[in-house]
Nucleic acid binder design. Structure first.
Lengths: 260, 260
DNA sequence: AGTTTGTTAGTAGCGCCATAACAACACCAC
DNA sequence: GTGGTGTTGTTATGGCGCTACTAACAAACT
């Protein structure tokens, strides 16, 4: 079984339920229908607690209560539970982010639009997010290099194709033919093999992104010191800064000395 | 302003952040960029706590950290934050519900497919969910009555149209012309005005749903005792039970004595 | 009588909020 | 330089609230 019960309950907890709520919800799905006693037999939730727990599950729309004696409980269908939770999630997201949008950078008018900053991003997913964001912020050209196809990913891929169709010069750079093959189908995205005598940088470079003349992101795959098994990717990026301009030029001339 | 800051932060808390995390996240959006001190000046979060809070926000992918002295923080864009949270949510949902699906009713094979049960549902949204679900479970006919258009709602509306197009006999019943008007555009859904000498039941009936000969849902709008301002809707339903059969017949003969 | 049900009280533990203290460092006047 | 002043990043320590868990009890049912 891919997911075991404890994992499932932990996930339910991360979705905002308490441990008891998760256990009772799962138990009611096992049972289909049951009384407080039934539930407490199948779980390690004390019977006396079942009443209040189901009550709060009812408030969340995950359980229905039958006012009989003894009280009968049933869990709503999985689809219904899921969509109820999703709806709640989106609702809370709206409330939170709508407000955040209104206050976006209401302080700090003293600092200019972009100051000299270099930012670190850790983790493969975060880095992909950031890269896709930067690709969309480019106005003229994008050059993206990746060691392997896993380091392209869906988000980045879509962003690259979008920009190419917007008329930007989009180039994908890789020694790995599998990466280049991703864009065999696309006319606007040029997939290029680097000159053999110039390795893209060190051997631990993961991905590199250049945009316009002043957008840059670069990641490395470090064998994490504490977790030797796991390859943790770390990146830094900078945009519209002096740093970025310099670094972009540096990388450009290294990577394709004749190209520009 | 539709949403004020406290509301937004409460929403963030319901999305799984702590109070401090919510405050810091919002503050960083106000600031654009800032140090621990900057953040603590704009919020009531102690400076010494900002370090650990931002760290956990970084783990969630909501904040980026610049390793300089002093350390600089910035919040990721709203879209990015939102999609990161959404992804996490869907991931947890998958883990949780995938498991629940595997254990669905693994006990209780003794009880038959449907036993004699009547279920209570409280709250307008839940009732709409349940009604839509029941509409989709009908195989021959659906009759839905609502006091006002708000009590139809999107979910139910879609379900009704779906079933009508599946070839079921779908009838919408209401004294309110606005409700009937909803289906002026639809040939398969018949919108009918009840005979004037038969009120749909008491004056506090909210919606009624009949499906086949043995599916029934009925809601009332009770002026809640503790919250006089608010109209709390409560429903009960039953499906494929003797109760349902009897009640359906009862309602049918009351509502449209000549129709069948 | 004996069991089950629904309700309430109460304790223990943990995570989060909040405050304080401290070494390391930067800045500045002299 | 030297010493003073302030800031930064880190760590320790209570308090408080929520959750987990136990216990007890009146009412209803067998």
């Amino acid at each position: 079984m891919a997911v075991d019960e404890d994992d499932a309950i932990e996930s339910l907890e991360r979705l905002g339920l308490t441990s008891y709520e998760g256990k009772v919800f799962v138990a009611l799905h096992k049972l289909g229908t049951g009384t407080a006693r039934d539930v407490s037999r199948v779980t390690d939730v004390p019977r006396s607690q079942v009443y209040s727990v189901t009550e709060s599950l009812e408030d969340r729309g995950l359980v229905e209560v039958q006012q009989s004696s003894p009280i009968q409980y049933r869990a709503v269908s999985i689809d219904e539970a899921r969509s109820t939770l999703r709806e709640r999630f989106e609702q809370e997201s709206d409330r939170a982010f709508d407000y955040v949008e209104t206050v976006h950078e209401e302080f700090g008018p003293d600092q200019e639009e972009e100051q000299e900053d270099i930012w670190m991003v850790r983790g493969q997913d975060r880095i992909a997010d950031r890269a896709a964001d930067l690709i969309r912020r480019a106005e003229n050209s994008v050059l993206f290099a990746a060691r392997s196809p896993e380091l392209v990913g869906e988000d980045i891929d879509t962003a690259l194709r979008e920009r190419a169709e917007d008329g930007l010069a989009v180039v994908v750079f890789s020694e790995d033919p599998a990466v280049r093959a991703l864009y065999d189908d696309h006319d606007e995205v040029r997939a290029v093999e680097p000159a053999t005598d110039h390795h893209v940088n060190d051997e631990h470079t993961g991905r590199a992104l250049l945009g316009d003349d002043d957008i840059l992101l670069l990641s490395v795959l470090g064998n994490d010191e504490e977790l030797p098994g796991i390859n943790r990717e770390t990146a830094f990026w900078s945009a519209r800064t002096g740093f970025a301009e310099v670094l972009v030029q540096l990388v450009e001339t290294t990577i394709s000395p004749v190209d520009r």
